[in-house]
Write a protein that binds this DNA or RNA. Structure first.
Lengths: 136, 136
DNA sequence: CATTATTACCACCTTTCGGTAGTAATATAA
DNA sequence: TTATATTACTACCGAAAGGTGGTAATAATG
């Protein structure tokens, strides 16, 4: 019951970028600060850029920064890039046929929770997260 | 944001056993009915037996059945066998230092959801699940 | 123009998860 | 007591996730 490590990385980077919104940050510096493996992070950043969540500038002095306003980048979008959006609609037991009319045994217990999680991800932007001001 | 496939298997098997509580079921039959890979399921059943969730009888006519009353086997125990109990207390971003006093940026958003999920797993027994009477 | 700091790209490596195969041990039943 | 249906155990296989290394392309700056 968790995000993949890559999704954790993605969220952490996006939050960090939102806390340093005006700057352009290199993979090197993000790697050092967030302690995410350099090459792996480099690939991840390209993926986020490809998905349009960040902009990238090549060459010396280049790097990454957010592509849009903080309040227009939603948590579900970040998760969606890595795990796919359907990960948030999935039956907890993995049955593709599971729905309210033909529920699996866990459906009644899980559905309200699933829907709250989804709601949270669809309502939370980087602005809210940035305003939380992590202490960690 | 999901259980591992193995955890899904484990829950499905336990629910099936609870629906056929009096019987002793072989891996062969469970495999055919639930369409879980035979040898993989065999190993999983041994794991569940080792954890004390099911009892096993060897030899011809042998097989598995629940070890305890339906209302004394909790969902968290099944998940715990496969993913470990700490999976339900884990910070959503993977920070071991994350807590209410020193939260990560997602903590405030995630904590209420995490705690509801945990609550559900600690309050749900096979009895409730069996009574759901899945249509799938 | 040469140097340097960066991203881009590609191939590979390692670990974990899911899955398979074969053989030994066990117990029932004919 | 022999055949058979089961679990037990161990080793291996394959795919996916996570991680590394090297080199080319790009662009700023001296």
């Amino acid at each position: 019951m968790r995000f993949s490590k890559t999704t954790e990385y993605a969220i952490r980077v996006m939050i960090y970028l939102s806390q340093h919104n005006t700057q352009r940050l290199s993979v090197q510096s993000l790697h050092k600060i967030l302690r995410i493996p350099y090459k792996y992070l480099a690939r991840l950043m390209r993926q986020l850029a490809h998905a349009g969540l960040v902009t990238v500038t090549q060459g010396k002095e280049g790097g990454y920064s957010l592509n849009r306003e903080l309040n227009s980048i939603y948590l579900y979008q970040i998760v969606g890039v890595i795990e796919g959006l359907d990960s948030m609609d999935r039956c907890i037991l993995g049955f593709s046929e599971c729905n309210d009319a033909f529920p699996c045994s866990l459906h009644t217990s899980w559905e309200p929770l699933r829907s709250r999680i989804k709601e949270m991800m669809y309502n939370t932007t980087l602005l809210e997260l940035q305003q939380q001001g992590e202490k960690i």
